[in-house]
């Protein structure tokens, strides 16, 4: 559960907590956050929590992971010490109380950031969540790339990706009528949003890249779903793709297999 994570890792951030005392740091950071909470009026706690909920919803529009740094700067301000507790209650509100959104902490060692993911399973019949045409076309492209990467063994060289997309009229060297600057969209926007990871190959000149699934993709979809999509396109059964089938069984078998 992601809700527990912020609390535990908060300790590492606090300069005051001694890094060596790992067993001690958890309780210490707890008390620190609790102390910060105790210094706030209940109404103030409520207000900050609601502010955070609203802030998360608004920032989610851009689909770029929301930085803890920004949350502290924009919402919590002088109460940033209480971040773990307020974040937990805001996550609870988003999940149970209101809209069924899950707050996920990104696994990034540089800085903590969060994304929102829909908790409610989607079906083709559920028509109440609509995407804009722009969203649809971009997500179509995301799905194509995720399929290619997964089917290609969870990684794909940029040259092969461009080569394949070109067959669909999406040329990264030319303006596309729907996507504009394709290279920028794929390598910058999708990567920043967490749909893709773009890793530079060592010792490559000119630089070559490997594409992998980003963290958001692992949260918003699964290998099984992507394989289903591919099977629809091919009109085949998932089991016919032996290695991919094994891969997804393996990932589902382990509790954190998606990562």
């Amino acid at each position: 559960m992601p809700k527990a994570k912020p609390r535990r890792q908060e300790a590492d951030d606090d300069a005051s907590s001694a890094a060596s005392q790992t067993s001690f740091s958890q309780t210490q950071s707890n008390t620190q956050a609790e102390r910060a909470m105790a210094g706030m009026e209940p109404a103030e706690q409520e207000r900050r929590t609601n502010d955070l909920v609203q802030y998360l919803l608004i920032m989610d529009q851009r689909k770029v992971p929301i930085k803890k740094l920004d949350i502290n700067k924009q919402v919590l301000k002088e109460h940033s010490k209480a971040f773990p507790i307020i974040m937990r209650s805001a996550s609870d509100k988003l999940s149970k109380v209101s809209v069924g959104l899950k707050v996920i902490e990104m696994q990034d060692n540089k800085q903590k950031s969060y994304i929102l993911v829909n908790e409610i399973e989607q079906t083709s019949e559920s028509q109440h969540l609509r995407w804009s045409d722009e969203e649809k076309s971009k997500m179509g492209l995301v799905m194509v790339i995720l399929s290619l990467v997964f089917m290609n063994g969870n990684t794909m060289k940029d040259s092969l990706l461009w080569h394949t997309l070109k067959k669909m009229g999406v040329d990264h060297e030319h303006q596309h009528e729907v996507f504009g600057d394709v290279k920028k969209l794929v390598m910058t926007e999708f990567v920043r949003q967490g749909y893709l990871e773009c890793i530079k190959q060592p010792n490559s000149d000119p630089p070559a890249f490997d594409f992998k699934w980003g963290q958001r993709s692992k949260q918003e979809t699964t290998k099984r779903k992507v394989l289903q999509f591919v099977c629809k396109v091919y009109e085949k059964e998932p089991q016919q793709w032996t290695s991919q089938w094994q891969d997804l069984l393996q990932s589902e078998g382990t509790p954190n297999g998606n990562a």
């Binding site: 989610d60 083709s124 609509r130 995407w131 045409d133 649809k136 179509g140 799905m143 729907v178 979809t221």
Partner: peptide, 27 residues
């Protein structure tokens, strides 16, 4: 030949919507 027009991409997006637990945009 070898091209997917805007409508095609939109149609594909509509088809793959159930595959994503994407949070709806807040307005």
């Amino acid at each position: 030949m070898g091209n997917i027009p805007f409508e095609g991409w939109v149609q594909m997006g509509e088809n793959i919507r159930p595959y994503f637990n994407r949070s709806p945009a807040f307005h």
